[in-house]
Protein backbone atom coordinates (compact mmCIF):
# COMPACT_ATOMS: atom_id res chain seq x y z
CA UNK A 1 0.00 0.00 0.00
CA UNK A 2 1.14 3.56 -0.62
CA UNK A 3 2.86 5.44 2.14
CA UNK A 4 1.58 8.67 3.54
CA UNK A 5 2.91 11.82 1.96
CA UNK A 6 4.37 14.51 4.22
CA UNK A 7 1.96 17.35 4.92
CA UNK A 8 3.08 20.46 3.06
CA UNK A 9 2.88 22.96 5.90
CA UNK A 10 5.47 25.67 6.35
CA UNK A 11 7.65 25.19 9.42
CA UNK A 12 6.11 26.73 12.49
CA UNK A 13 2.60 26.89 11.05
CA UNK A 14 -0.20 24.56 11.89
CA UNK A 15 -3.06 23.75 9.56
CA UNK A 16 -6.45 24.11 11.22
CA UNK A 17 -8.37 20.85 11.05
CA UNK A 18 -10.99 20.84 8.32
CA UNK A 19 -14.51 21.33 9.60
CA UNK A 20 -16.61 21.00 6.45
CA UNK A 21 -16.22 19.29 3.09
CA UNK A 22 -17.96 21.47 0.52
CA UNK A 23 -15.91 20.88 -2.65
CA UNK A 24 -12.38 19.86 -3.61
CA UNK A 25 -11.28 23.37 -4.65
CA UNK A 26 -9.77 23.90 -1.20
CA UNK A 27 -7.99 20.52 -0.97
CA UNK A 28 -4.24 20.34 -1.48
CA UNK A 29 -2.59 17.37 -3.17
CA UNK A 30 -1.26 16.18 0.18
CA UNK A 31 -4.64 16.43 1.90
CA UNK A 32 -6.18 14.29 -0.84
CA UNK A 33 -3.28 11.85 -0.61
CA UNK A 34 -3.56 11.43 3.16
CA UNK A 35 -7.32 10.97 2.91
CA UNK A 36 -6.99 8.30 0.22
CA UNK A 37 -4.41 6.46 2.36
CA UNK A 38 -6.88 6.46 5.21
CA UNK A 39 -9.59 5.19 2.83
CA UNK A 40 -7.34 2.29 1.86
CA UNK A 41 -7.16 1.31 5.54
CA UNK A 42 -10.94 1.51 5.69
CA UNK A 43 -11.19 -0.82 2.71
CA UNK A 44 -9.37 -3.35 4.81
CA UNK A 45 -12.06 -3.01 7.50
CA UNK A 46 -14.68 -3.50 4.75
CA UNK A 47 -13.04 -6.80 3.85
CA UNK A 48 -13.42 -8.24 7.36
CA UNK A 49 -16.22 -10.64 8.21
CA UNK A 50 -17.26 -8.36 11.11
CA UNK A 51 -17.34 -4.98 9.38
CA UNK A 52 -17.58 -2.73 12.39
CA UNK A 53 -15.17 -0.73 14.51
CA UNK A 54 -16.07 1.46 17.50
CA UNK A 55 -14.26 4.62 16.33
CA UNK A 56 -17.26 6.95 16.11
CA UNK A 57 -19.31 5.60 19.00
CA UNK A 58 -21.38 8.40 20.50
CA UNK A 59 -21.27 10.55 17.35
CA UNK A 60 -24.47 11.52 15.54
CA UNK A 61 -24.53 11.79 11.75
CA UNK A 62 -27.68 12.98 9.97
CA UNK A 63 -28.10 12.37 6.26
CA UNK A 64 -30.38 15.13 4.96
CA UNK A 65 -31.26 14.17 1.40
CA UNK A 66 -33.65 16.57 -0.31
CA UNK A 67 -33.24 14.95 -3.71
CA UNK A 68 -33.59 11.28 -4.69
CA UNK A 69 -30.47 9.16 -4.18
CA UNK A 70 -29.69 5.53 -3.56
CA UNK A 71 -25.98 4.93 -3.71
CA UNK A 72 -24.72 8.11 -2.08
CA UNK A 73 -27.18 8.02 0.82
CA UNK A 74 -26.73 4.31 1.52
CA UNK A 75 -22.97 4.69 1.16
CA UNK A 76 -22.85 7.45 3.80
CA UNK A 77 -25.21 5.54 6.07
CA UNK A 78 -23.19 2.37 5.81
CA UNK A 79 -19.91 4.26 6.32
CA UNK A 80 -21.24 5.85 9.51
CA UNK A 81 -22.66 2.61 10.85
CA UNK A 82 -19.46 0.65 10.26
CA UNK A 83 -17.66 3.20 12.40
CA UNK A 84 -20.41 2.86 15.07
CA UNK A 85 -21.82 6.37 14.65
CA UNK A 86 -25.56 6.77 15.10
CA UNK A 87 -26.87 7.58 11.64
CA UNK A 88 -30.27 9.21 11.20
CA UNK A 89 -31.76 9.55 7.74
CA UNK A 90 -33.97 12.52 6.91
CA UNK A 91 -35.56 12.67 3.47
CA UNK A 92 -37.77 14.97 1.51
CA UNK A 93 -40.99 13.14 2.27
CA UNK A 94 -42.13 12.38 5.79
CA UNK A 95 -40.06 15.28 7.14
CA UNK A 96 -40.99 18.87 7.94
CA UNK A 97 -39.47 19.89 4.58
CA UNK A 98 -42.76 18.56 3.22
CA UNK A 99 -44.59 21.04 5.46
CA UNK A 100 -42.57 23.88 4.00
CA UNK A 101 -39.99 24.26 6.75
CA UNK A 102 -36.99 26.14 5.41
CA UNK A 103 -33.65 24.43 5.01
CA UNK A 104 -32.17 26.85 7.53
CA UNK A 105 -34.72 26.01 10.21
CA UNK A 106 -34.40 22.28 9.58
CA UNK A 107 -30.63 22.50 9.94
CA UNK A 108 -30.79 24.68 13.05
CA UNK A 109 -33.17 22.14 14.57
CA UNK A 110 -30.76 19.28 13.86
CA UNK A 111 -27.93 21.32 15.32
CA UNK A 112 -29.97 22.01 18.46
CA UNK A 113 -30.38 18.24 18.80
CA UNK A 114 -26.58 18.14 18.87
CA UNK A 115 -26.04 16.39 15.55
CA UNK A 116 -22.29 16.30 14.99
CA UNK A 117 -22.42 16.24 11.22
CA UNK A 118 -25.00 16.78 8.48
CA UNK A 119 -24.54 15.11 5.11
CA UNK A 120 -26.55 17.25 2.70
CA UNK A 121 -27.86 16.39 -0.75
CA UNK A 122 -29.76 19.31 -2.26
CA UNK A 123 -31.15 20.16 -5.70
CA UNK A 124 -29.77 23.72 -5.57
CA UNK A 125 -26.15 24.73 -6.00
CA UNK A 126 -24.51 26.21 -2.93
CA UNK A 127 -26.94 24.81 -0.34
CA UNK A 128 -24.10 23.23 1.75
CA UNK A 129 -22.22 26.56 1.74
CA UNK A 130 -25.35 28.20 3.03
CA UNK A 131 -25.53 25.70 5.90
CA UNK A 132 -21.83 26.08 6.64
CA UNK A 133 -22.40 29.83 6.96
CA UNK A 134 -25.23 29.44 9.47
CA UNK A 135 -24.22 26.39 11.55
CA UNK A 136 -21.90 27.06 14.44
CA UNK A 137 -21.19 23.59 15.83
CA UNK A 138 -22.41 21.03 13.30
CA UNK A 139 -20.13 20.02 10.42
CA UNK A 140 -21.42 19.89 6.85
CA UNK A 141 -20.51 17.41 4.12
CA UNK A 142 -21.70 18.11 0.61
CA UNK A 143 -23.26 14.98 -0.89
CA UNK A 144 -24.13 16.76 -4.14
CA UNK A 145 -25.52 20.29 -4.62
CA UNK A 146 -27.39 21.12 -7.81
CA UNK A 147 -25.03 21.51 -10.75
CA UNK A 148 -22.17 22.56 -8.52
CA UNK A 149 -20.14 19.93 -6.68
CA UNK A 150 -20.02 16.35 -5.46
CA UNK A 151 -16.71 16.14 -3.62
CA UNK A 152 -17.04 12.65 -2.13
CA UNK A 153 -17.85 11.24 -5.58
CA UNK A 154 -14.72 12.89 -6.95
CA UNK A 155 -12.64 11.58 -4.04
CA UNK A 156 -13.84 8.03 -4.59
CA UNK A 157 -13.08 8.44 -8.29
CA UNK A 158 -9.57 9.62 -7.43
CA UNK A 159 -9.18 6.66 -5.08
CA UNK A 160 -10.26 4.26 -7.82
CA UNK A 161 -7.84 5.81 -10.32
CA UNK A 162 -4.96 5.82 -7.84
CA UNK A 163 -5.47 2.18 -6.95
CA UNK A 164 -5.01 1.20 -10.59
CA UNK A 165 -2.61 3.80 -11.93
CA UNK A 166 -0.46 4.20 -8.83
CA UNK A 167 -0.02 7.91 -9.33
CA UNK A 168 -2.27 10.42 -11.09
CA UNK A 169 0.64 12.67 -12.01
CA UNK A 170 0.53 13.12 -15.79
CA UNK A 171 -2.48 10.85 -16.27
CA UNK A 172 -4.96 11.76 -19.01
CA UNK A 173 -8.59 11.68 -17.88
CA UNK A 174 -11.40 12.17 -20.39
CA UNK A 175 -14.80 13.22 -19.04
CA UNK A 176 -17.60 12.71 -21.58
CA UNK A 177 -21.15 14.02 -21.62
CA UNK A 178 -23.27 16.74 -20.02
CA UNK A 179 -20.50 18.71 -18.32
CA UNK A 180 -22.67 21.82 -17.98
CA UNK A 181 -25.03 20.21 -15.47
CA UNK A 182 -22.49 17.87 -13.89
CA UNK A 183 -21.40 18.38 -10.29
CA UNK A 184 -19.30 15.21 -10.71
CA UNK A 185 -17.31 16.72 -13.58
CA UNK A 186 -16.71 19.98 -11.69
CA UNK A 187 -15.45 18.35 -8.51
CA UNK A 188 -13.31 15.90 -10.45
CA UNK A 189 -11.74 18.77 -12.39
CA UNK A 190 -10.50 20.32 -9.14
CA UNK A 191 -9.35 17.04 -7.60
CA UNK A 192 -7.58 15.95 -10.77
CA UNK A 193 -5.91 19.34 -11.21
CA UNK A 194 -4.59 19.15 -7.64
CA UNK A 195 -3.33 15.61 -8.32
CA UNK A 196 -1.42 16.58 -11.46
CA UNK A 197 -3.67 14.85 -13.99
CA UNK A 198 -4.80 16.49 -17.21
CA UNK A 199 -8.51 16.62 -17.99
CA UNK A 200 -10.13 16.60 -21.42
CA UNK A 201 -13.83 17.50 -21.50
CA UNK A 202 -15.88 16.10 -24.35
CA UNK A 203 -19.55 16.49 -25.15
CA UNK A 204 -22.17 18.49 -27.05
CA UNK A 205 -21.50 22.25 -27.18
CA UNK A 206 -24.98 22.77 -25.75
CA UNK A 207 -23.83 20.98 -22.61
CA UNK A 208 -20.54 22.77 -22.03
CA UNK A 209 -20.19 25.84 -19.80
CA UNK A 210 -20.11 28.81 -22.19
CA UNK A 211 -17.13 30.32 -20.38
CA UNK A 212 -15.05 27.28 -21.39
CA UNK A 213 -16.08 27.59 -25.04
CA UNK A 214 -15.27 31.31 -25.23
CA UNK A 215 -11.74 32.06 -26.36
CA UNK A 216 -9.84 34.58 -24.27
CA UNK A 217 -12.32 34.61 -21.40
CA UNK A 218 -11.76 33.62 -17.81
CA UNK A 219 -12.33 29.85 -17.56
CA UNK A 220 -14.18 28.55 -14.51
CA UNK A 221 -12.27 25.26 -14.20
CA UNK A 222 -8.53 24.77 -13.79
CA UNK A 223 -6.33 22.96 -16.26
CA UNK A 224 -9.00 21.53 -18.56
CA UNK A 225 -9.04 21.32 -22.35
CA UNK A 226 -12.01 20.77 -24.65
CA UNK A 227 -12.23 18.25 -27.45
CA UNK A 228 -15.70 17.80 -28.94
CA UNK A 229 -14.72 14.76 -31.03
CA UNK A 230 -14.81 11.73 -28.74
CA UNK A 231 -12.54 9.62 -30.99
CA UNK A 232 -9.86 12.30 -30.77
CA UNK A 233 -10.43 12.99 -27.08
CA UNK A 234 -10.08 9.38 -26.06
CA UNK A 235 -6.72 8.85 -27.82
CA UNK A 236 -4.17 7.56 -25.27
CA UNK A 237 -6.44 8.20 -22.32
CA UNK A 238 -5.68 6.54 -18.97
CA UNK A 239 -9.23 7.00 -17.73
CA UNK A 240 -12.54 7.51 -19.52
CA UNK A 241 -15.35 8.79 -17.34
CA UNK A 242 -18.77 9.01 -18.89
CA UNK A 243 -21.57 11.06 -17.31
CA UNK A 244 -25.24 10.32 -16.91
CA UNK A 245 -27.42 11.93 -19.57
CA UNK A 246 -30.69 13.21 -18.11
CA UNK A 247 -33.55 12.38 -20.44
CA UNK A 248 -35.14 15.81 -19.91
CA UNK A 249 -32.23 17.57 -21.63
CA UNK A 250 -33.54 16.45 -25.00
CA UNK A 251 -37.03 17.80 -24.20
CA UNK A 252 -35.37 21.08 -23.14
CA UNK A 253 -34.02 21.50 -26.65
CA UNK A 254 -30.38 20.83 -25.79
CA UNK A 255 -30.07 17.73 -27.95
CA UNK A 256 -31.43 16.80 -31.37
CA UNK A 257 -32.12 13.19 -30.35
CA UNK A 258 -30.83 10.41 -28.14
CA UNK A 259 -29.88 8.58 -31.32
CA UNK A 260 -27.59 11.40 -32.43
CA UNK A 261 -26.14 11.71 -28.92
CA UNK A 262 -25.40 8.01 -28.83
CA UNK A 263 -23.79 8.11 -32.25
CA UNK A 264 -21.46 10.94 -31.33
CA UNK A 265 -20.78 10.59 -27.60
CA UNK A 266 -21.53 7.04 -26.46
CA UNK A 267 -18.48 5.25 -25.08
CA UNK A 268 -18.32 1.85 -26.82
CA UNK A 269 -15.70 -0.83 -27.51
CA UNK A 270 -14.38 0.74 -30.70
CA UNK A 271 -13.82 4.03 -28.94
CA UNK A 272 -12.35 2.46 -25.80
CA UNK A 273 -9.81 0.68 -28.02
CA UNK A 274 -8.27 4.06 -28.87
CA UNK A 275 -7.42 4.62 -25.19
CA UNK A 276 -4.28 3.24 -23.57
CA UNK A 277 -4.27 -0.53 -23.10
CA UNK A 278 -5.87 -1.28 -19.74
CA UNK A 279 -7.50 2.14 -19.52
CA UNK A 280 -10.18 2.48 -16.88
CA UNK A 281 -13.84 3.07 -17.66
CA UNK A 282 -15.79 4.88 -14.97
CA UNK A 283 -19.32 6.13 -14.46
CA UNK A 284 -20.74 7.88 -11.37
CA UNK A 285 -24.09 6.13 -11.77
CA UNK A 286 -26.93 5.62 -12.18
CA UNK A 287 -26.23 4.50 -15.75
CA UNK A 288 -28.38 4.74 -18.88
CA UNK A 289 -26.99 1.64 -20.56
CA UNK A 290 -27.12 1.98 -24.30
CA UNK A 291 -27.07 5.79 -24.13
CA UNK A 292 -23.89 7.23 -22.67
CA UNK A 293 -22.29 3.82 -22.25
CA UNK A 294 -22.60 0.63 -24.34
CA UNK A 295 -24.13 -2.18 -22.28
CA UNK A 296 -21.37 -4.61 -23.10
CA UNK A 297 -18.78 -2.18 -21.75
CA UNK A 298 -20.68 -1.38 -18.57
CA UNK A 299 -20.18 -4.93 -17.44
CA UNK A 300 -16.89 -5.53 -19.20
CA UNK A 301 -13.34 -5.91 -17.96
CA UNK A 302 -12.32 -2.26 -18.03
CA UNK A 303 -15.38 -1.14 -16.08
CA UNK A 304 -14.64 0.17 -12.59
CA UNK A 305 -18.26 0.91 -11.83
CA UNK A 306 -18.75 -1.54 -8.97
CA UNK A 307 -15.25 -0.87 -7.68
CA UNK A 308 -16.20 2.82 -7.50
CA UNK A 309 -19.16 1.95 -5.28
CA UNK A 310 -17.03 -0.13 -2.87
CA UNK A 311 -14.39 2.58 -2.72
CA UNK A 312 -17.15 5.07 -2.02
CA UNK A 313 -17.99 3.43 1.29
CA UNK A 314 -14.31 3.26 2.32
CA UNK A 315 -13.69 6.86 1.31
CA UNK A 316 -16.73 8.12 3.23
CA UNK A 317 -15.61 6.15 6.30
CA UNK A 318 -12.23 7.88 6.11
CA UNK A 319 -13.86 11.27 5.68
CA UNK A 320 -16.34 10.90 8.55
CA UNK A 321 -13.54 9.61 10.73
CA UNK A 322 -11.32 12.56 9.96
CA UNK A 323 -14.04 15.18 10.41
CA UNK A 324 -15.44 13.71 13.63
CA UNK A 325 -12.17 12.89 15.39
CA UNK A 326 -10.03 15.68 13.99
CA UNK A 327 -7.31 13.29 12.91
CA UNK A 328 -6.28 11.20 9.95
CA UNK A 329 -5.02 8.37 12.17
CA UNK A 330 -6.40 5.00 11.30
CA UNK A 331 -8.68 3.21 13.74
Amino acid sequence: MTTRAPVEAAPGTSVAPRRHVLDLDDFSASEIHVLLDSAEAMREVLGRSIKKVPSLRGKVVVTLFLEPSTRTRVSFEQAGKMLSADVINVGETGSSAEKGESLLNTALTLQAMRADLIVLRHPHSGAPYFLARHLTSTAVVNAGDGMHAHPTQALLDLMTMRRHLGSLEGAKVVIVGDVLHSRVARSNAFGLAASGASVVLCGPPTMMPLDLLRPGGTPSLPNVTLEPDLDAAIEDADVVMTLRLQAERQAAGMLPSLREYTRRWQVNEARMSRAKPGALLMHPGPMNEGVEIASSLAHGGSSQIEEQVTNGVALRMALLYQLLTGTEERP
Binding site: S125, G126, D145, G146, M147, H148, A149, R183, R186, P209, L210, D211, L212, G217, T218, P219, S220, L221
Partner: peptide, 15 residues
Protein backbone atom coordinates in the same frame (compact mmCIF):
# COMPACT_ATOMS: atom_id res chain seq x y z
CA UNK B 1 -24.33 36.92 -14.84
CA UNK B 2 -23.43 34.28 -17.40
CA UNK B 3 -19.67 33.85 -17.11
CA UNK B 4 -16.99 32.24 -15.01
CA UNK B 5 -18.59 33.16 -11.70
CA UNK B 6 -21.90 31.47 -12.55
CA UNK B 7 -20.11 28.49 -13.98
CA UNK B 8 -17.81 28.19 -10.98
CA UNK B 9 -20.80 28.24 -8.65
CA UNK B 10 -22.78 25.78 -10.77
CA UNK B 11 -25.54 28.33 -11.28
CA UNK B 12 -27.45 28.98 -14.49
CA UNK B 13 -26.10 32.25 -15.90
CA UNK B 14 -28.21 35.18 -17.09
CA UNK B 15 -26.55 36.23 -20.35
Amino acid sequence: NEGWVASRLGLAGYP
